[in-house]
Simulated assay, not measured.
Amino acid sequence: MTVEIKHAAGTTQIPEAIESAVALEYSFVDALVALDVNVTGVADDGDSANIIASIRDQVGDYQSVGERLNPDLESIKKAEPQIIIADQDRHKELYDELTQIAPTILVKSFDANYNENLDSFRIIGKAVSKEDKAHEAINQHNDTIKKYTNSIELDKDKTTLPIVVTNDGVVAHSVKTYVGSFLEELGFKPALTKEVVENSSEYMGADYLELDYKQLSEVNPERLFVMVEDENSNEVKSLQNSEAWSHIDAVEKARAHFVNRETWAKFRGLVASENIAQEISEINE
């Protein structure tokens, strides 16, 4: 028996009973764990520590299949998947090769906003024949997010900007990105205006915007969520030592919050979203 699944690359027949899956994005790992599907392979960028702590133990042992941007096909074969979950933008050029290994579906992750990631979760749930479980998981997720939303004490009317620090500036996450749209879902007011978005360079062809220090100061957010892997990195120190940093309203008013980049920017799943909402609910000013 098979299940017919419509996705970004067309229609694919998938075995009705899925006992092994390869995930080429972290949000797909999040989804498969929530659906109690055995994840036998993960594009973990070569480091199992990239799997966020709240689900790492649930994933258990798996085959690393290399980088998310460029997964290793031989390693995917070793994982012996019955299904491969791939990103519709990052992996579309690999689709034909992936389908020679196992039935593959392309859904949004990297360039998806919060609600689009929920849609991807629903598709994955149907693909692994756990549509009812996916529906139940989303209902529980919505209840959890509502609970955290109501417990957030921060002033949501302050213009808010989530950023990742780079070597010579920042990458700002607009409201079209996962983090930007999720913060808006929680009730925060976006700092990026349409004009700023239109006059900024896109990062990796997506709705992430490259801003130098001067542009960041011109946006002048009243609240910053700074997504970092290491708060003491050279990139972070360079930003903090820049002339622009001290004049940003969020910095002057002690509303610059340093948060974990893996959880906030890379995972984009139900569990990660709940972790983010919980973390924000625990911040006091």
Rank of each mutant, 00 (worst) to 15 (best):
residue 115 N to R: 14
residue 78 K to Q: 15
residue 51 I to D: 05
residue 29 V to F: 10
residue 109 S to N: 15
residue 92 K to H: 11
residue 51 I to M: 03
residue 92 K to P: 01
residue 89 D to M: 13
residue 99 T to G: 03
residue 55 I to Q: 01
residue 40 T to A: 00
residue 27 S to L: 06
residue 69 L to Y: 13
residue 63 Q to K: 15
residue 24 L to Q: 02
residue 58 Q to H: 12
residue 90 R to Y: 11
residue 116 E to T: 01
residue 72 D to A: 12
residue 91 H to R: 10
residue 116 E to H: 04
residue 113 N to P: 01
residue 101 I to H: 08
residue 32 L to A: 07
residue 43 A to C: 11
residue 44 D to R: 00
residue 106 L to E: 03
residue 97 E to N: 15
residue 97 E to H: 13
residue 76 I to V: 14
residue 63 Q to N: 14
residue 77 K to C: 00
residue 34 A to G: 10
residue 112 A to F: 07
residue 111 D to W: 08
residue 48 S to P: 09
residue 89 D to Y: 14
residue 82 Q to H: 06
residue 46 G to K: 05
residue 94 L to H: 03
residue 74 E to T: 12
residue 31 A to I: 10
residue 60 G to E: 05
residue 93 E to N: 13
residue 44 D to A: 09
residue 21 A to G: 01
residue 73 L to D: 09
residue 82 Q to L: 03
residue 77 K to L: 12
residue 61 D to I: 13
residue 42 V to I: 15
residue 29 V to K: 05
residue 66 G to A: 05
residue 71 P to G: 03
residue 78 K to C: 08
residue 67 E to G: 14
residue 93 E to P: 00
residue 72 D to C: 09
residue 51 I to K: 06
residue 47 D to I: 06
residue 116 E to Y: 04
residue 61 D to M: 10
residue 80 E to N: 14
residue 63 Q to S: 11
residue 99 T to E: 13
residue 106 L to T: 04
residue 57 D to R: 05
residue 73 L to S: 04
residue 36 D to W: 03
residue 63 Q to C: 05
residue 75 S to R: 14
residue 98 L to F: 10
residue 58 Q to Y: 10
residue 66 G to F: 06
residue 34 A to Y: 04
residue 21 A to W: 02
residue 57 D to N: 15
residue 114 Y to I: 09
residue 69 L to G: 15
residue 56 R to D: 14
residue 68 R to G: 00
residue 106 L to A: 02
residue 58 Q to T: 11
residue 36 D to A: 12
residue 51 I to F: 02
residue 62 Y to V: 02
residue 74 E to V: 12
residue 23 A to C: 13
residue 72 D to N: 15
residue 30 D to T: 10
residue 57 D to I: 00
